[in-house]
Write a protein that binds this DNA or RNA. Structure first.
Length: 422
RNA sequence: GGAGAAAUGGCAGAGCGGUUGAAUGCGGCAGUCUUGAAAACUGUUUUAGUGAAAGCUAACGGGGGUUCGAAUCCCUCUUUCUCCGCCA
């Protein structure tokens, strides 16, 4: 969530930046300021009463020590009466505070100045494109037919065991999954990331920390008996490592990478665009996460973008990079680059990575700070990106590299795969 | 899963109803000394809210309660440790 300090001190700038999302938020912001002011008034009044009560308690203690019990009892009564006022003010403060939090949760992150005003995907800017149109045979097949032909993924079997969107990878299909995961992890290690294998079930506090809760509850699988959630991305556990943590300046930037399966309920999805591997309930992803000093974060975002570009280039996939417009950007993000790989047989772009700078939006909820040069605690910036998500990479690889007599695998995967062709 | 014990500052560890935001030790930081370092000595060392500041308020695992007053008593949850059971 946005920090109150920013809303208070840079009100006009925040409003201007929020407007880039295509919706005027000035009323909400001013309402928040009003609630905040009211809250502070209540708080001041409460604290004054508490101070009085503390002073009386001390006085009673002293009186008992000197044996002046009669006098002490009189003050005791006075203090008892004060308690009612305090209780009332406490409740008022609690109400004001929860109202304030509720309103703050409702405001998305204010986009970076680099973000273009826009309302949907049509307003995104393509800032980079690489690769050439694959040369496909005349009878080229979409990946969902290739996976069947070469027995790589069994969707039917997944239906039987679990349900739609839970595919079973078999034979070379399974080995391709493992190869990609290892390739992505190794590339991240080479780039200086530290490998983490986190839990894939998280508690409620973690869901709130990275912003999946309380709003997007319906997107996650929920194990109700133990009140745990299946992670929709490794971002959740890996970023929550730093919840309620004060880092040293020398710790930054922190560069973590983790592979996890990801679970998304994708409630309400249907139709051709979810066919095959295009959209799944369970999929695999390697995620890179960085924690950075504010002044470094945008440079680091560029580095992360370069890293993802490198992966796609090595895989030989035609791809493009989009800078999302305000209206298409995620709730928590200040600047997002989407990566789309070209799917030759489907003749469409498939989103394979989303790499974002959240500035202090997540850090504020997480209470993740670092001690700066002046010894002050300052919120960090958090960033993350998929590097990469597997299913659509597999779809593109299979489709783009199909030949009359098999599917060629890119060279960078050969040693991981133990074969060169499917 | 059963039985028992415990949770205090960066760490270790006192306190177990009344100037205790918290003794002491270690660590950290600053200074004295030194050519420099070590040692020794001196000082300093949590965080958040509010305020121009002084100050005030809150926090001893989380939540709730008793009391004029709680780190200290009670309830509850969580976690850790020990023993038993089960298990890859």
């Amino acid at each position: 969530m946005l920090t109150l300090t920013a809303i208070r001190n840079q009100t006009e700038e925040i409003i201007k930046r929020l407007a880039l999302r295509g919706k005027d938020r000035s009323n909400d912001i001013h309402e928040i300021l009003k609630i905040d002011e009211n809250k502070r008034q209540i708080q001041t009044s409460l604290e004054q009463n508490l101070a009085k009560s503390n002073a009386l308690a001390k006085e009673i203690g002293d009186l008992f020590k000197t044996g002046e019990t009669v006098k002490a009892n009189i003050i005791k009564e006075e203090s008892s009466n004060l308690k009612n006022t305090i209780k009332m003010l406490e409740q008022e403060l609690l109400d004001a505070d929860s109202l304030l939090t509720e309103k703050l949760y409702d405001i998305p992150n204010s986009p970076s100045f680099k973000v273009k005003l826009g309302y949907g995907p049509e307003d995104n800017e393509t800032i980079f494109e690489w690769g050439t149109e694959p040369n496909l045979p005349p009878n080229a097949l979409p990946h969902w037919e290739l996976t069947e032909k070469y027995k790589l993924v069994d969707f039917e079997l997944g239906n039987k065991i679990t349900g739609a969107g839970f595919p079973v990878y078999t034979g070379k299909g399974a080995r391709l999954q493992r190869a990609l995961i290892n390739f992505f992890l190794d590339e991240a290690l080479k780039a200086g990331y530290y490998e983490i294998q986190p839990p894939i079930l998280v508690n409620e506090a973690s869901g709130i920390g990275t912003g999946q809760l309380p709003d997007k509850e319906g997107q996650m699988y929920h194990a109700t008996i133990d009140n745990l959630y299946c992670i929709p991305t490794a971002e959740v556990p890996i970023t929550n490592i730093y919840r309620d943590v004060i880092l040293k300046e020398s710790d930054l930037p922190i560069k973590n990478v983790g592979y996890t399966p990801c679970f998304r309920r994708e409630a309400g999805s249907y139709g051709a665009h979810v066919r095959g591997l295009n959209r799944l309930h369970q999929f695999d992803k390697v995620e890179i996460v960085q924690i950075a000093k504010p002044e470094q974060s945008y440079e680091i975002l560029e580095q992360m973008v370069e890293h993802v570009k490198g992966l796609l280039s090595k895989l030989g996939l035609k791809y493009r990079v989009l800078r999302l417009c305000g209206g298409d950007m995620g709730f928590a993000s200040a600047l997002t680059y989407d990566f789309e790989a070209w799917s030759g047989a489907q003749q469409k772009w498939l989103e394979v990575s989303s790499t974002s700078n959240f500035e202090t939006f997540q850090a504020n909820r997480l209470k993740c700070r670092y001690k700066n040069k002046d010894g002050k605690n300052e919120l960090v910036h958090t960033l993350n990106g998929s590097a990469l998500a597997l299913p659509r990479i597999v779809a593109s690889l299979l489709e783009n590299n199909q030949t009359e007599d098999g599917i060629e695998m890119p060279e960078c995967l050969h040693t991981y795969l133990g074969f060169t062709k499917i």
